[in-house]
Design a protein around this nucleic acid. Structure first.
Lengths: 247, 247
DNA sequence: CACCTGAATATGTCAAGACATATTGACGAA
DNA sequence: TTCGTCAATATGTCTTGACATATTCAGGTG
């Protein structure tokens, strides 16, 4: 019996959607090696039968893993596990979340946290009037004793009172989520440039060292901009990894 | 009548799936400004009614745009157009495709195209035995008179005969697609470093200039690796833009 | 032997309907 | 006035069923 369903158990009393239960357990089976690279999974019809689910539900579960780049569908043939280690696709989390999840115990030094008049660029990104007050937040993130990133964020003042928050111990995104600000879409631009004297100093790099740059604008579930940031990373300690899927 | 459906016409005789027709026309309406930032679109039920479609089909169409970061769903509320210009999310195309689509007329100088023994790294990425012969392809891409990128690709020798291809006039991905090699998943790592003397020379940069780096491994629809590349970009001429969507 | 045909298989698309759950606002009671 | 409840609304999840289409392979035909 080489039925893919043998790795999957459902809990119909759980509030977790069935398709999500299937997707999660299928992902586990792949990551644990029970479904090796190139392995074909059972077809949707028989999988639905084995699990006591309808085909659309099973299909929805498989789609989750296809979107993650872990499975590939071939019409008329079947669905296979993609070779190669799984790099979780870039998700809508922050550097702090990423590091904390990796057990790296990040910490942060707040360089400045003030209200400033929005520059042209910031006003455009945040959709406020130029000159209007916004939060300007500058932080250096460390991992162990090494500085890793210099982050500069701008937020609308009416969104949150940043001075009341312990930004040394908690990430900005984590804080915003706790205050009920839900980020749903973010647009990023990744590039590179030399750091200036101050930037290199703060990051513990030599003068004019090459730095990885990232600009991000985040939008909440109403479609409005809630955060704009320009960040600098030490390229020897941080890279961006992402998985692309053709549709 | 503020019905979203007024922008949409269906062609049931077309082989293009109905959900795709709806998604494409909805996208067009948003890009053309007929559906402005923050606008609410009709609910799924009435949209289905107006178009003579079932709700799952309409839902599938909307999902396409949600995945692109153009729409945001809110349960119990409705679906809205996201603010901000739409940056097409990173797709599974090459730099050549991107530039050609932008009407930039890119051209390419092939520095070398030889068979070499796979290094440890290349063998691991392409899943061949270390020392086995692979194609090694080095190209410089120009835009106008400016060098833009230095690209180094490795491919299995049994996949294609690279020497028989006009790589100066056609992109590598374009060529592979024409030969029936369909890339479905790619994993990328983006970073930065200083260029060495030769790299800076080829890219027309000063010595030790900061460069944007990208490594990519592509997988075909059988889940096997078909291409591994390490690329260098001039950061003043090229950046990576991507849209993240929370699920 | 080579080629074409057709059956088997599996994913892709679409329909119609049901129930669950989050959100919002109106209404009524303390 | 304030709080809580309930109804209306819209998305989220799930089922059953159907037909379309790409792929593969076995078997028949020239």
């Amino acid at each position: 019996m080489s039925d893919t369903a043998e790795h999957i158990k459902l809990d119909r009393s759980s509030p977790v959607p069935l398709y999500f239960q299937v997707a999660a357990q299928l992902e586990r089976a792949i990551l644990d090696g029970h479904l090796g690279a190139g392995a074909r999974i059972s077809d949707e019809i028989s999988l639905a039968g084995s699990l006591g689910l309808s085909r659309p539900t099973v299909r929805q579960a498989i789609q989750v893993l296809v979107d993650k780049g872990m499975l590939v569908r071939k019409r008329g043939v079947g669905t296979q596990v993609v070779h190669g280690k799984i790099n979780r696709s870039v998700e809508l989390t922050s550097l702090f979340d990423d590091l904390a999840a990796a057990g790296q115990d990040p910490h942060t030094v707040v360089q400045s946290c003030t209200r400033v008049a929005a520059t042209e660029e910031v006003a455009t990104e945040l959709r406020v009037a130029p000159g209007e007050e916004v939060w300007s937040l500058e932080r250096v993130r460390h991992i162990g004793t090494e500085p890793l990133a210099l982050m500069h964020n701008y937020l609308p003042v009416d969104l949150i009172d940043l001075e009341a928050v312990d930004l040394a111990e908690h990430g900005l995104y984590e804080t915003l989520r706790e205050r009920g600000v839900l980020m749903r879409v973010a647009k990023q631009r990744i590039g590179a440039r030399k750091g200036d004297a101050r930037e290199c100093e703060l990051l513990g790099e030599k003068r004019s060292a090459p730095l990885l740059t990232m600009q991000r604008t985040s939008y909440d579930d109403a479609g409005g901009a809630v955060e704009f940031g320009t960040h600098l990373y030490r390229p020897d300690l941080y890279t961006f990894e992402l998985t692309l899927v053709d549709r």
